[in-house]
């Protein structure tokens, strides 16, 4: 019997892969990739098809390849075909809906009951040992660890630095010998593959893939990313990655707690929207308030100066 807490942790870890994808595209490359939902479902669909065909391990690279292709298309649209980055995401996301149904053989729901998945494989392998109950958790943690450490490693390489610079100061990269188009394409392919991996794992975990599995994932992941950022404000990329994973788990935890407090399950998406709004609008208002504060002190200073002048004037007069 797995506890509620463990399920929360498992789901948090699985969706943290999408959060890591956003960490790369949104935080590093500074691109809001609106094709995230579609790529997530694409990973689920491709993974499920492979699992049903009897290839539980091939499911993982297949899903990642599908996600990378989706990222490639999104990137090509905005770097080579003059499309705005938001619009290219929307267009790919919409098109992906049809592609995903096609991948699932024309159906909008695939069932993997009784099939071997990476999760069931590991759980079976651990059968009888004391770790059996933690099989799914170990599997999810393994993927997060693998993706997290390779991402951390990648971001420290010169290629990774070029990618960070492309988001940080595109003007600089444009006037350097780095091909910013190639960097953008690479970044979106990698982030697409992470998103799809996340979708694939969620489908395998819940033993079913449906066409709406990715709906709202972008906002959920963005909320997690922003929660994570709150706790790991400063620090390098390694901390940022740890923060993204922690944010994802925390988001799931909040959600589970809210469910325990009788929040209906359909409120998940609203909760994620509200968190994103608070996380983005909050600092914005704080900034404004700070500015108003400094304006007030400026006005006060001015007033003080004026009264000082009056004092001097009256002093001179009386002299």
């Amino acid at each position: 019997m797995t506890s509620l807490f463990q399920t929360t942790l498992e789901l948090g870890l699985i969706s943290s892969l999408t959060v890591l994808a956003l960490y790369l595209s949104y935080s590093m490359l500074n691109i809001c990739d609106l094709s995230t939902d579609g790529a997530f479902t694409m990973g689920a669909a491709a993974g499920a098809v492979m699992v049903i065909a009897g290839h539980p391990f091939l499911a993982v690279p297949s899903a990642m390849l599908a996600g990378a292709l989706s990222g490639l298309l999104t990137a090509l649209l905005q770097t080579k075909m003059g499309m705005d980055s938001l619009l290219s995401g929307i267009v790919v996301n919409t098109g992906a809906y049809s592609i995903n149904i096609a991948i699932m053989g024309g159906s909008s729901l695939l069932n993997m009951n009784g099939r071997t998945t990476v999760f069931s494989f590991i759980t079976d392998a651990l059968a009888g040992s004391s770790l059996e109950a933690a099989g799914k958790l170990i599997t999810a943690a393994f993927f997060v660890l693998a993706v997290g450490t390779s991402l951390a490693f990648f971001l420290r390489t010169r290629l990774g630095l070029a990618l960070r610079a492309a988001g940080d100061n595109p003007d600089m990269v444009r006037s350097s010998s780095i091909n910013i188009t190639a960097i953008t394409i690479l970044g979106l392919c990698i982030s697409g593959s992470f998103t799809a991996l996340s979708g694939c794992l969620l489908a395998c975990y819940s033993k079913s893939a449906n066409i709406n599995i990715g709906t709202g994932m972008l906002t959920v992941a963005l909320a997690s990313l922003l929660i994570g950022r709150m706790f790991f404000k400063k620090g390098g990329t390694a901390l940022g990655i740890a923060g993204a994973v922690a944010g994802s788990v925390l988001f799931r935890l909040f959600y589970t707690l809210a469910l325990r407090l009788n929040m209906p399950a359909y409120m998940l998406k609203l909760a994620s929207s509200v968190i994103v709004i608070i996380a983005i609008a909050g600092p914005h208002f704080l900034e404004k308030a700070k500015k108003r504060g400094s304006r007030l002190t400026a006005a006060a200073l001015f007033k003080r100066k004026e009264s000082h002048h009056a004092e001097i004037k009256s002093y001179i007069k009386n002299f």
Binding site: T157, R158, L159, L161, R164, A165, N169, S177
Partner: peptide, 25 residues
């Protein structure tokens, strides 16, 4: 315009140096 503000001085220099290939650290 010439530097990436969120990255450290050494990261900026390393990027410009082009040393040890794309996967070098």
């Amino acid at each position: 315009q010439g530097t990436a503000p969120a990255m450290s001085i050494e990261d900026n220099l390393f990027l410009a140096s082009g040393r040890s290939g794309w996967l070098g650290r």
